[in-house]
Amino acid sequence: MYRPSISCAGLLCLGFLTVLPAQAHRTEVSGDVAGTWHLEPNHSARAGEPARVWVALTQQGGRVIPLEQCDCNLAVYRANQTNAAPVMQPALTAMSPESFQNVPGATITFPEVGEYRIVLTGSPTADAAFTPFELSYTTVVAAGSAPSAPTPESKLSLADQTATRLEEPGDRRRLWVALAAGGVGLAIAALLLLRRQNLPRPKDESPNP
């Protein structure tokens, strides 16, 4: 009678997943540590809006690894940029979501729309015994509803914006033409006024009494 075989890796994952809730998903194994990722809300982060990410760490057999027993670090990278510096390195805090207690988590605000890779690395503290691990999770960040930050130009006063626009060559030429036309107009008006003052005044032609 044929019996299907189960690989060691399959048994290892089965040992990890038996203690995870039914709705848990996106689980990755590194060494003897498994991490189940969760991104709130609904694994659909939006740019400019805070999102909460947490990782349920378990060892084979189902023992949960709390944050105090893990020297963990979290980093966020652009998914399409290899060997690049992280976009951010959020501080980890102990969270207790669902049926877990004190698992590592953080609040992340993704700056822009795009694909990101979240990487959690960890090693045991003196009170724990597990192999160092590296777990990663890739997510696509959609456009958010948060208002964008004002551009530096919008913060300028009206006078500053006018001065900035006048720095362009075409604007400078128009300004000089306007000033020259105004000067010519003032000169003509002054000449006419001076000429009028120099004209002889008419004598009084009324008859003598």
Rank of each mutant, 00 (worst) to 15 (best):
R165C: 15
V64T: 00
R172Q: 13
H38I: 03
L193F: 11
A159T: 15
E68D: 13
T162V: 12
L156H: 05
A159I: 10
Q101I: 00
A190Q: 04
A51S: 10
V177Q: 06
P97G: 07
T27W: 01
S136N: 11
Y2I: 11
N102A: 14
G183Y: 06
V53Q: 02
G62E: 14
V177R: 08
R196T: 10
A106D: 00
Q81W: 11
S99I: 15
A22H: 04
P4H: 08
T121S: 12
A126G: 08
L175H: 14
S30I: 02
E98H: 08
L92T: 02
L135H: 02
A146I: 03
T18S: 13
L17P: 01
S5H: 14
L156S: 06
R195T: 05
G185P: 01
T139M: 07
V53N: 00
I108C: 02
T36W: 09
G15W: 06
A181C: 14
E168D: 09
V113F: 04
W54T: 00
E112S: 08
E112H: 09
D171W: 05
L158K: 12
A47W: 07
A34T: 08
P200D: 07
F133K: 00
C70A: 14
C8A: 15
N83H: 10
T18H: 13
W176R: 08
R3K: 08
G144N: 09
Q81P: 06
V53D: 03
L158V: 15
A178N: 09
A106M: 03
S5T: 15
A189K: 07
P41T: 02
P200H: 08
C70N: 04
A181P: 04
A180F: 09
L20C: 14
Y116A: 09
T162K: 14
P207H: 08
T58G: 08
E205D: 14
V140L: 15
A9S: 15
R26L: 00
L186C: 09
P4I: 02
E168F: 09
P207R: 07
L192V: 07
D160M: 15
C72E: 05
L92A: 04
K203M: 03
G10S: 14
V177P: 00
L12K: 08
W176D: 04
L179Q: 12
A181N: 03
S206P: 00
T121R: 09
R172M: 06
E98I: 07
G15R: 05
P41L: 02
N102L: 03
R173Q: 07
Y2G: 13
E40N: 09
S157F: 09
P66D: 11
G31I: 07
A178G: 12
I108S: 04
L192H: 09
L179D: 06
P66I: 06
P202E: 11
F130E: 05
C70M: 12
